[in-house]
Computed example of a mutant assay.
Amino acid sequence: MVASRGTKEDTNMATIGNFTASGNGFVGSVKTLALGTVKTKIVPAERSSEKAPDYRIFAGANIEFGAMWKKKSQDTGREYHSVKLDDPSFPAPIYATLVEVEGEEGFSLIWSRSNRD
């Protein structure tokens, strides 16, 4: 499920990651201009409050660079995951959505930025 924030003309979207389910988390990779391709694992987090993330995101073995929350679309009722990635090389955090790829086994990490210049 990818939530739309306007018409196709005013939103740019890009797949920046591909994942497969692994136990109760996910494994795959994230690719950005700043990071290149990074092997990534997403593991369940111990939640201390309702606002705490459901998952933590790690690059390589143990470098945490993001968090993920379970969400449900109000429009369709489908579940998806809201992702926030951050790294000192980024000018700002990256917000993305992890969605199941229809007709395939796997998930895509979709980044989008609204063009409201």
Rank of each mutant, 00 (worst) to 15 (best):
I57R: 07
A92P: 01
T15Q: 14
E79I: 00
Q74H: 10
F90K: 05
F65I: 12
S73D: 04
R47A: 13
K8W: 12
V99Y: 01
P44C: 10
D86V: 04
D54M: 12
I42A: 02
T20D: 01
R56Q: 14
M1F: 06
S108P: 01
G17L: 09
D117W: 07
S22D: 08
K72F: 08
S22T: 06
G25F: 02
Y80M: 12
L33W: 05
L98I: 07
E100I: 04
E105I: 03
R56H: 15
S48D: 10
V99I: 09
Y95P: 01
E102M: 10
T20I: 04
K72N: 10
E105G: 13
T11R: 05
T15M: 15
F26W: 03
F26A: 05
M68N: 05
R5A: 12
A3I: 13
T76A: 10
T15Y: 12
S22R: 01
D75K: 14
L109H: 03
R113L: 09
R5H: 14
M68K: 02
P53Q: 10
T7K: 14
F58H: 14
F58N: 07
T7N: 14
I42Y: 04
D86H: 06
N24M: 08
E9F: 15
G103D: 08
G103V: 09
K84D: 06
K70T: 05
R5T: 12
G25M: 03
R47G: 11
E64W: 00
E102V: 06
I94N: 07
G17I: 02
F58P: 01
L109P: 03
S29I: 00
R78P: 00
I57A: 14
N115H: 15
F65Y: 15
A67I: 03
F19A: 01
V43D: 12
T20V: 07
A34L: 09
K72M: 13
V27W: 02
